[in-house]
Structure formats: C-alpha cells, structure tokens
Simulated assay, not measured.
Amino acid sequence: MFDLRRRSSTVAIQVIVTVMIIPFVFPLIAMVRGSLEGQGWQNYLTVLSVEELPLFFRNSIVIALGTLVPVYLCTMLAAFGFSKLRIPFKELYFWLLIATLALPEVVLLTPMFTTAMALNLYNTYLAVIIPLAALQLPFTVLLTRNFVNGIPDELIEAAELDGASLMRTFTHVLLPLTKPIAAAVIVLTVVTAWNNFLLPLVFLQDASHQTITQLPLFFVGEFSNDQTKVLAAAVVTIIPEVITYIALQKYFERGMAAGAIK
C-alpha cells in the first residue's frame, strides 16, 4: 500500500502518472511539430486566412453554448431529484438513463436523422444541439448525482423547515454547493460539443452552418492532401478548448474527483 509520506511511494506514483500521460502527450507533440513542417508558421497564416473561419467559430460557439444550457439545467435538476427527492421508482428511472451510455452515437444516427427530418429540424442548429445534449446527459447526471449525494440531507431539510419552496431550495442551497461539479459539466459539455465532427457533417448541409471541425477538410481534396495545414487547422481548432480548461481547471479537477467517488 502506498504511503505518500515515503519518498519511494511518491516517486513510484510520479513514474506511474508519467507513463500514463505519455500516450496522450506524444500525439499532441507530433501534431504541433507536423503543423510547422514545410512552410513553418506560414501554415498557420494560411489556415487563419480561410474566409469561412470566423463563421465556423461562430457556429461552433452557438452549438457549444446551445448544448451547454440544457445539459447544465437538466443535469442539475435530475441530480437533485435522483439524490434528494422522494420520487417513486427513481432508482429504476436512474438506471434506465445510465443504460443509454451503452448506445454509441453511430447506432443512433439513423433514428436521429429520421426524427430531425420529421420535425423539420434538418440543416438547423437544433438538429445538432438536441442530440448532443441528449447524448451527454446520462454521464453528467451520473457524475453530478454522486456529487450531490455528498451534500448533507440536513441542509435540504433545514431549508424546508425555514419555509423555502422546492425551487428556492434548489437555487439557493444546492446550486451554490455544486460549483465544482458544475465546472466539470461545463468543460466536458463544451469539449464534446466543440469536437463533435459527425453530427454537424450529417445534419448541417448548408456550408454556412458548418462548424470548426470541418476546417481541416479545406486542405484535403481530390487532387490535394496538405497534411501540414490539416495539422495546423487541428491546432487552431483546439485552442478554445484549452483556454476553457485552463480557466476552469481548479474547479474541474475538484468536481471530477468528488463526482467520481461516492
């Protein structure tokens, strides 16, 4: 058993963590190095000169924020209900929700496409936002419920005794205490929505609605395949995600640690 007060244990843990990180660091290093080959920084200038770039960024921001709002609200409400409220068969409903984690996005593509067409949502932001939010909810609810389970029931009961309504208890007691897990939900949702390639490609036919994930395709065609600029476009694409994570890093790490362990 590791004793963190011993130097040997600390070194061993550091080595294990380093080995675990290597498979993720090397692809990033290779991506940045590859993006600077050939014309060097000119590759980035070429990517930034793409006329549709501001439009792609706008569309990605709209979809990311449009996905974040329902995911955050539904996650917090669901976690509050599953953890603190007396709801008949709530454990059954919870596990039915968790069971959907076993369904991959590709399997659901055909029914989602049929539904979007039936509701006249095809080629609109909602055709991407609604499926993204629905696919993200099971995991965020699981994570947040574990966090909310750690909040003492006495706080909820005290608010009820003071005459607070259910909604007031939720907004004034629960939400302020869930800031760490909320940061984790925000980062996970934004990264997932920002990185999603398949749904915008399928549901957004109009080029003016495409997202930033389509940017590398500008440098791959029938008669061209400029991988240096593809890698430069990939680097440009991940910059907003890195900024979001750095801004919320402290809360994200606390939230993930608390939400993953009951």
Results as ranks from 00 to 15, higher is better:
230 V>C: 07
43 N>F: 13
41 W>T: 15
85 L>V: 00
176 P>R: 05
152 P>M: 08
233 A>N: 12
175 L>I: 11
95 W>G: 07
217 L>W: 11
187 V>D: 06
16 I>T: 11
2 F>C: 12
126 L>I: 08
67 T>C: 09
244 T>Y: 13
211 T>A: 00
113 F>P: 05
219 F>C: 02
231 L>F: 12
16 I>L: 15
10 T>M: 14
22 I>Q: 00
246 I>Y: 10
88 P>I: 14
131 P>A: 04
179 K>R: 14
126 L>M: 11
162 D>S: 13
103 L>R: 02
40 G>W: 04
143 L>K: 04
211 T>F: 03
6 R>D: 15
196 N>W: 06
134 A>H: 04
49 S>Y: 10
7 R>Y: 05
158 A>C: 08
82 F>N: 07
111 P>A: 05
91 E>M: 09
33 R>G: 13
125 Y>G: 12
135 L>I: 08
33 R>N: 15
192 T>R: 14
196 N>K: 00
59 N>L: 04
204 L>W: 03
221 G>H: 03
133 A>T: 03
215 L>C: 11
44 Y>N: 02
248 L>S: 08
145 R>W: 00
220 V>P: 13
110 T>S: 05
219 F>A: 00
139 F>E: 07
116 A>P: 00
30 A>Y: 10
55 L>A: 01
161 L>M: 14
182 A>Q: 10
209 H>G: 01
11 V>G: 01
204 L>N: 07
214 Q>C: 11
246 I>M: 13
175 L>P: 08
55 L>H: 02
205 Q>H: 01
7 R>A: 02
28 L>W: 05
155 L>F: 04
222 E>Y: 09
103 L>V: 15
183 A>Y: 07
134 A>Y: 03
230 V>P: 02
224 S>E: 14
153 D>M: 10
77 L>T: 00
208 S>C: 09
114 T>N: 14
162 D>M: 14
200 P>V: 06
69 V>P: 09
142 L>N: 01
167 M>N: 12
148 V>G: 03
70 P>S: 04
119 L>V: 01
63 I>P: 06
222 E>M: 08
209 H>E: 05
39 Q>F: 13
222 E>Q: 12
97 L>Y: 00
77 L>K: 01
34 G>H: 04
215 L>K: 02
155 L>V: 08
225 N>P: 06
